[in-house]
Simulated scan of single mutants.
Amino acid sequence: MAWTADDIPSQEGRLALVTGANSGLGLATIQALAARQATVILACRSSRKAEAAQQQLQDQGLSRLELLELDLADLSSVKRAAESVRDRYGHLDLLINNAGVMAPPRRTTVQGHELQFGVNHLGHQALTQALLPLMENRPDARVVTVTSGAQYFGRIHWDDPNWEQRYERYGAYGQSKLANVMFALELDARLRQRSSTIRSLAAHPGLARTQLQPTAIASGGNGAEALVYRLMDPLFQSAAMGALPQLHAATAPSAQGGEHYGPNRLGGLRGHPSRCRVAPTANNPVERERLWNLSEQLIGA
C-alpha cells in the first residue's frame, strides 16, 4: 500500500520547524503537519512571504502556525533564529531542513561562502547544531535534511568548496546536495555514538514542481536549459507528492535514523516514498567526517 499524507499519525503536542516554509515543498510539508495538529514554525527569509503563507494556510482552516525570521545565507541570522526558538519555546520535536537555492550565478553568503553550499548545507548544519539541545530527550525527536537526486553526480571540492575557481552552477548545486545527505548520515552516526534520543534522516523529492526550477532557468538565461526542462515537464509531480518522502522520514513510525527516502518510481523521479540509495561518498565515514570538520571550520570562521 502506497504511503500518503493520510498515513501521518497525529502530531498533536509536537513542535516542528520547517525551513523554506513559504512555498513549494516547505509549504506542502507544513500543510500536512498542521492538518495533523502539529504546531509548526514557518522559518523564512522574507517576513512578507511568511505572513502570506501563514494567511494562505489559515484560510484553509489550519492553525498553530508560528513565524520565524531566518536567513540561512547569514550565520548571524541563524544564531538569532535558534536563540529565538530557545527563548520562545524551550524545546523542539521536529526539524526539517528543507530550504534551498538551485543553480544561481555565483554569489556568496554574508560570511563569504558560495551561496548554494552556504544556504543548502552550512546554514542548515549551523541551525541544526544550535537546536539539538532543545530536541534532546523529546519523544521521537527527528532531524530531516532534504537533499536531491543531484547528490548522485555531486562531489565535494575539498580544495575549493566555495568555487572561487571555475564556478559551475550545477556542479556547485550537486556539491551542496551531496553535502546534505553526508551531513544527515554523519549526524545520525554521531547521535548514536553519544546515545542520543534524536534521529537524523534524509529525503529527496524526485522531480517536484516548485519555484526552484523556473528560478534556476531564469537566472541562467540559457535557451537549451529551458528547452530541456520543458521536455521533462511531464515527469514532474506536484509539490505535495514531492514532500511525501520528507514527511515519511519525519513522521512514519517505521522510519529509522540514518535512512534515506525518495520516490519509488522511474528511478526515484516520481512516486510514493520508499527507502532509496545514497551517493556512494555519503556511505564513506571518512569522507563524512572530513566534510563535518571542514564545515565546522567554515561555520566558525
Rank of each mutant, 00 (worst) to 15 (best):
N293T: 15
V85G: 02
T108I: 11
V110K: 15
F117N: 02
V228D: 08
P161K: 10
D87V: 09
D93Y: 06
G90V: 11
A103E: 06
P105F: 00
R64Q: 09
Y173E: 07
A240Y: 02
G300M: 12
I198F: 02
L67C: 00
D71F: 05
F183K: 09
N283Q: 14
Q151I: 10
W3H: 10
R36F: 12
A2M: 10
V78T: 07
G267N: 09
G271K: 13
A243L: 00
E289C: 01
H121W: 15
H124R: 04
Q37M: 12
Q297M: 13
V278C: 10
L231T: 14
L27K: 01
I30K: 06
M1C: 03
S77L: 09
E287I: 02
A2V: 14
G268A: 02
L127V: 11
L92S: 11
L227E: 12
Q297A: 15
E289M: 03
M135P: 02
L132A: 10
I8H: 04
A21S: 09
M135K: 04
S148N: 08
R142Y: 05
R199C: 11
G258Q: 07
G223K: 14
G258T: 03
T197Q: 01
S176T: 04
G267V: 06
E289K: 08
W158D: 10
Y89D: 11
D160W: 11
E51C: 09
Y173S: 08
L92D: 07
N22D: 03
V85K: 01
L15M: 01
I96F: 10
F117M: 13
G257V: 03
A172L: 02
L94W: 06
R48M: 08
H124K: 04
E83V: 06
W292L: 06
